[in-house]
Design a binder for these strands. Structure first.
Lengths: 164, 164
DNA sequence: GCCTTCTCCTACCGTATTGGTAGGATTAAG
DNA sequence: CTTAATCCTACCAATACGGTAGGAGAAGGC
């Protein structure tokens, strides 16, 4: 599995925020109910989004969360990165902050382990497909399928960005 | 993390097999020693590769494993799929064998959950980057960097297939 | 004021998966 | 008949995942 439920719930949370008008904040309770997700867990997840400055909050009664920026300018690699912490294909893929070297258990024998080429490409593929997708696209998609479930697009259709 | 050590060790195992001449089999013990991996664990992993008919084995003394096909014709999506079982971005991404429908906890309210668009694209990105890479490429890469560690290519170089 | 509705913070916890070990049975070469 | 290998299956410790629990602050409504 590539992503955990943090990414799943967090993205759905962002979509729900985007469906509302950007002015008045939405409470987590409302989102938890409409999405059928546990409130206490959503609280932890939204904290990650706030730390990344993807959402803003107002406390107290009638408070809640709203998007910091318009959904069109939010790319999903930002969102998923904030939620998952990193997008690494493999445990050994921990970049050292100093020199950016990729650590690997097999680093002493060869210059770099044989699988490095592969994981770098995979990581690139994931990040690129995330970056090509904006939050606005997901919001449009969710509205489309909720209004008319029958017109749900095929997987092939999904692979092409709707904004060419 | 996208992949487990099964994929890591399994790919390295395939690379080691490819480095040898394809005729005489290589024992797991030799690979375990040269790669510094636990033998008993490698046995389980190579069983996955054998089940997928990516390697063949001969039992008894002087036995071992060898590639079933030339490394040029082996794409890494086959290998990783055999090792990991599936390449799914999310828990809800379990295709039912019957109708291929993607299950999702949120499937009852909307036609499909809002994140489906995103996960389909990510899955496509991963599989595509795996499929563009052949085992032969990894073998060539491992020989290159073991002979001359200094000439290790940059990450940008890695992103482009060496066979255009 | 003070009650309610929110965000915010942190500690805990059951369960499943991961990353192995252990022990043996089977097969073939010398 | 010993040795070197594949094969098979059960077990196990640690970690991460997916939450719960319980509260402490902040802002409106009355």
């Amino acid at each position: 599995m590539i992503f955990t439920t943090k990414a799943e719930y967090g993205v759905r949370l962002m979509v729900e925020l985007g469906r509302q008008s950007a002015e008045l904040p939405v409470s987590l309770k409302a989102i938890a109910e409409s999405e059928g997700l546990p409130l206490a867990y959503l609280e932890q997840i939204v904290a990650l989004l706030k730390r990344a400055e993807l959402v803003e909050s107002t406390r107290g009664a009638h408070g809640g969360y709203r998007l910091s920026r318009p959904a069109e300018s939010v790319t999903m690699d930002e969102v998923v990165l904030a939620l998952e912490g990193s997008i690494a294909p493999m445990t050994c893929f921990v970049e050292d902050a100093d020199d950016g070297r990729v650590l690997c258990s097999h680093v002493d024998d060869h210059g770099s382990c044989a699988t490095r080429l592969l994981w770098v490409r995979v990581q690139g593929g994931v990040i690129e497909s995330l970056r090509r997708t904006t939050l606005a696209e997901l919001i449009a998609f969710s509205q489309r399928s909720s209004v008319d479930p029958v017109s749900a697009p095929t997987d092939n259709e999904l692979l092409l960005p709707s904004v060419a």
